[in-house]
């Protein structure tokens, strides 16, 4: 084992400092050290996207980032997405449009969609499908997820 090193990461608006082993994956830091278990692990090879968080504002697979790499960065997870009791439009869209079934891929899928709508506030159906191609869902066949993202995009455009 190698010596723990100090890190400070701003997670969901709170500075979190810890001593971590360099090999600790960001996803495990979030889940194990901070008890932010909404971010999930679904594969070993950076394909499934269940672990997607926003790292300095851009979507990243937190299973493919060492916590030490995120030292000094800002991380947003699914737990930090709602504004108090008010759901983020994407959370609302997923609920309204039945964009989830088992819910395991959902946090990562939503965080990917946040990144997508930030870059492209009015995506076409094809752009949405391409935009979430880094996230696997085994339950929904994606159709209701696409609807959910469209729902959110429309709502965000109105406000």
């Amino acid at each position: 084992m190698s010596e723990p090193v100090p890190i400070t990461i701003n997670v969901n608006g709170r500075k979190r400092s810890a001593m971590v082993e360099p090999r600790l994956l960001l996803v495990h830091f979030l889940r194990e050290s901070l008890n932010l278990t909404g971010t999930h692990v679904g594969c070993d090879t950076s394909q499934c996207g269940a672990c997607t968080v926003l790292l300095d504002g851009s979507s990243a697979k937190s299973c493919t980032v060492f916590a030490v790499q995120a030292d000094g960065s800002e991380v947003q997870t699914i737990e930090g997405l709602a504004d108090g009791d008010e759901l983020h439009p994407l959370q609302d869209g997923f609920w309204e449009e039945h964009g989830l079934q088992c819910g395991y891929c959902t946090p990562g899928m939503i965080m990917s969609a946040v990144n997508l709508l930030e870059e492209n506030p009015a995506p076409s159906e094809a752009e949405i499908r391409e935009g979430i191609s880094g996230n696997l869902c085994r339950c929904t066949g994606y159709q209701h997820i696409v609807n959910a993202i469209q729902h959110a995009a429309e709502r965000m455009a109105q406000s």
Partner: peptide, 20 residues
């Protein structure tokens, strides 16, 4: 609308790996 969803879309559900 599903009653399961609020916990699932906010990262508040408890899967096995979330148990400590």
């Amino acid at each position: 609308k599903r009653r399961e969803d609020p916990r699932l879309i906010q990262g508040q559900a408890t899967y096995v790996d979330d148990i400590k």
